[in-house]
């Protein structure tokens, strides 16, 4: 049981490039190479219905993957309904729907992998 010591520790918000791993981005990129063309314009996020009710933003998720913060993406990627509206508006021709699908598949793979590790312990 965690004890309440009357204070909390703030998480480090800093993106530390030397600690984070970009391996998930590279995996996603292999599955959907068009992700590299993203210029973070936010058009996809503006048009996304999921984004109106949650903090879902494809623009942000692509950036988080690029910066190596895969965990935040894995936790939220299922909020997407794969409606494909974002694909219609992306000015860079990113195959957004295919991209999200790939992220979902890879996320599940990573989650399974992690579970297996936990079960072995």
């Amino acid at each position: 049981m965690a004890k309440d010591f009357g204070y909390t520790i703030s998480c480090d918000r800093q993106i530390d490039f030397d600690k984070l791993s970009r391996s998930m981005y590279l995996e996603v990129k292999k599955a959907e190479p068009s992700v590299d063309a993203c210029i973070s314009c936010g058009t996809c996020a503006a048009t996304c219905t999921a984004g109106q009710f949650t903090d879902f933003s494809l623009r942000k998720f692509i950036l988080l993957l690029r910066r190596g913060d895969s965990l935040s993406v894995i936790q939220s990627i299922d909020k997407c309904m794969l409606c494909g509206k974002c694909q219609l508006v992306c000015p860079m021709g990113v195959n957004t729907r295919g991209l999200i699908y790939s992220i979902q598949v890879i996320s599940r793979r990573i989650e399974c992998r992690n579970r297996r590790v936990v079960n072995k312990m």
Binding site: I15, F17, S40, K60, L64
Partner: peptide, 12 residues
């Protein structure tokens, strides 16, 4: 700062 993520960033 990674201003698109709103987070400070450091890199060697």
């Amino acid at each position: 700062e990674d201003t698109l993520l709103g987070k400070p960033l450091k890199m060697n």
